[in-house]
Structures are given as structure tokens and as C-alpha cells.
Amino acid sequence: MNNLWILNMGFVALLIGIGLYCLLAMKNTVKLLIGVEIIAKGVTLALVASGYARDNLMLAQAMVITVIVIDVAVIATALALIISINRHTKSLDVSKLTQLKG
């Protein structure tokens, strides 16, 4: 059971790595959000895998559902932001967001 947990955690690490790559390398704002979604998938997988390994699946599922609900709220806000930005710049290109110098 523990080894299955470690196998799952390995894939969690892969998903988070892919998501971070997407966030760092991509230029399209919608793509960045897809990166965030991939990271979120990795984390939900981690929660369920932990619940399965510790025989506490019900608690894990309760948490996963909360995470998904919160995720929907974040994604909705982010997409609303992207649409509003698009009205200003007529583009989805993040490199055109140069008003601020970070």
C-alpha cells in the first residue's frame, strides 16, 4: 500500500513539473491557466492517493470536493480577468503585459 502511494506521488511530481514548465515557458494567458489546472490535478491526485494509502478515503474525498469547488471559483475569476484584459489589449499574449515592471 505504501509503495502504491509512492508510485502515485511520483506521478504527482511529474504533473506538477509539467504545470510549472507551462507557467514559466508559455506566453498565452489561457495556456498559463491550463498550467495552473494541471498543478491542481496533481494535488488532487496526491490527496486521494494519501487517503487510499492511509485507509481514510472518505476524508480525502471530502477534501478533494472542496478543492475542486475552490478551483472552479479561482478559474472563473481568472478567466474573467483574461477576458477583461483582452478588451484592453486585443491579445492573449502575456508578453504584451508590460505596464508593470515587477
Partner: peptide, 12 residues
């Protein structure tokens, strides 16, 4: 996501 991952590991 980092915070939640850490929580998942601790839960595990």
C-alpha cells in the same frame, strides 16, 4: 498548490 501538496504529504 504548494501548500496543499504539503498538506497532502502530511496527510499521507
Amino acid at each position: 498548490a504548494f501548500i496543499l501538496l504539503s498538506i497532502a504529504v502530511i496527510f499521507g
